[in-house]
Amino acid sequence: MYKVIERKQIVPNIHLLVVETEHIHKNAHAGEFVVVRADEKGERIPLNLVDWDERSVSMVFMEVGTSTSKLAALKPGDEIATLAGPLGKPTEKSEGKKIVCIGGCYGIGALNPVLRMFKANKNHVTTIIEARSDFLLYWRERLKEHSDELYEITRDGTRGVRGHINDFLVEHLKKSKVDLVYVQGCTYLTYLASETTRPFGIKTIVGLNPIMVDATGMCGVCRVTINGETKFGCVDGPEFDGHQVDWDNLLSRRKIYIREEVYSLSFYECERYG
């Protein structure tokens, strides 16, 4: 069992979770993730590492289904059943490059260690965070620290630039020379960003989120098609070249359990709230 140090809602539906562990920080790198299981009956789910130190790791998660609802109900002092990591391949290092980093929903939090790593390696980092509305944007100060420039985009224009990430990205890529684009967030965002950079021929690294179970390469549920080849998301990824991803396959595989997920959530809510 692993003790929860902190769990708080940062913005509606998005939470920070800090859990005690001495093991994980030693080998943790930007771009890696952990597997958590809320309780003994829980599912194993992957969450990106957003920070770590000698006694804890932090994650940012979006409340969507049963597993994340269970996590959202945690209080400091509670315990979770599983915490394993760091897992996955670290973000590839680069030096002295011009990099645009894009984050949406939980991906805003997931950018944190990646920006820090890019910055430490003397890259020029342009960070773009996006959300539907101002009240869903978070961590701008924290991310600014590791960015040379930071842009905010809201669909309703309540903060920063109004519109969609693709419009902004196109304008930005036309204006400035960019060596690499890096994207964290839901599948739609990673897909959209990849399709936007494709005509520019700019290498685009995306963090994918296929369904996982063990997350150590044992089960193969996380398989994704990259450049026509099957890869395991948990050990060969989770970051891949967005221009090589078979998005249709990823999107349909993410929906395998939609029916069960809805059922599971209503079951959980009945149990919890009666």
Binding site: G220, V221, Y257, S264, F267
Partner: peptide
Amino acid sequence: SANEYLTRANLMKAYLFPEYDTPIV
């Protein structure tokens, strides 16, 4: 894969879904 099928069923107890959270087809 057999590993996924059996891991869901055995380790994660998907045969007891939804009491256990892990689903299986």
